[in-house]
Write a protein that binds this DNA or RNA. Structure first.
Lengths: 186, 186
DNA sequence: TCTAGATCACATCATATCTGTGACATAGCT
DNA sequence: AGCTATGTCACAGATATGATGTGATCTAGA
């Protein structure tokens, strides 16, 4: 079974025809390490789904320091939702940390698909709710937890990340310095 | 004096006002190693001029082998002229081999500039002629010279290239294998 | 059949980048 | 005032990636 089908069916069951119809709205691309899929300033018209590989979405603050919003691993969705939904220029970058194989759906195709297949509306609504909860928890964690606690939480939730991406990026995600992160693991 | 002014004045003299007017049609960008300035499939609307850095324009043949059309070093112009002039999707990629600082002029601005400032028409006409001659010579060289002869010619004309870009790219430019190139230097 | 050059496999080297760690600075808490 | 958590700076060693050279073979064309 196609991994996207498996992914969607974790939330809503699909017939073969439905999946074929949905899948027809996606296109696939390969990108290599260092390539961007979203750049600051552009209006993002695609939502990506990671088949294989690893990406980061990030921006630079006024001191030129990098902050990571999200990593994208296998079976994750990634885009700049603000730009994608509001049709405004993006404030962020998304690029590949490894060679990647991605599926994407354009804004228009996603609109069409949701109106024509009500199930997908439900799918995305659910995804969106869970995404919102995750963001909220991250904010809470940033407010109330120490660096060590945030480190432990991340390590517990996504141990693979620590094997896969450079520690300085984990640090930029947790909001601590590279050196402090290194000392947290002691 | 701005390097672009120096570059243009090697062909046509300019007043301060003229250069300021010309310069107003250009924009500057920085790109880092691995970033694309042109990708296959897009209609290229910019012509780039290299302030600092190094780029390659290239494509892949049906065997997935990379072939290099042109390198871009300081004071060189680079774009996909076919796409730029004919407004058709590009068949090539151009990306940065080093961090780069570039100037670019858009198609429309170039059109405006040439109609409004006749000198620039002369400038580009001359550039274009010389570019054409260079291309023709490259074809001749590919047809009649051995790999060793092509290697020697390139080494004579652009010795800096050999210091600056990986040998496998020199090979992809000369149309020989990496290994053969390595043995040519003996 | 000789030659120029390709392809494959491998070893060595160079470079970039990642990672840990000491020394020290600083801001907020108690 | 002094403690704690964290940041910043500098440096050194570890690791990974890519660049380079070279032998062994293979092939197409003069």
């Amino acid at each position: 079974m196609h991994p996207l089908r498996k992914h969607i069916e974790e939330i809503i069951p699909l017939t073969d025809e439905e999946f074929a119809y949905i899948f027809g709205h996606f296109q696939s691309i390969k990108k290599r390490k260092h390539q961007y899929i979203v750049q600051e300033g552009e209006v993002v018209s695609k939502e990506f789904w990671v088949i294989t590989g690893c990406l980061k979405s990030y921006f630079f603050d006024h001191n030129g320091k990098e902050h990571i919003l999200q990593f994208g691993l296998e079976n994750w969705w990634i885009t700049d939702y603000e730009s994608f939904v509001k049709r405004t220029p993006s404030k962020i970058f998304i690029d590949c940390l490894e060679d990647c194989e991605l599926l994407y759906i354009t804004y228009d195709d996603r609109e069409k698909l949701t109106t024509q297949l009500h199930k997908m509306e439900r799918f995305w609504a659910k995804k969106s709710k869970y995404g919102r909860i995750a963001l909220q928890n991250r904010i809470l964690s940033l407010l109330k937890n120490s660096a060590k606690e945030r480190y432990d939480l991340l390590l517990e939730q996504y141990p693979q990340l620590f094997q896969r991406v450079p520690k300085k990026l984990i640090a930029a995600y947790l909001g601590v310095s590279r050196e402090t992160l290194s000392r947290l693991g002691e």
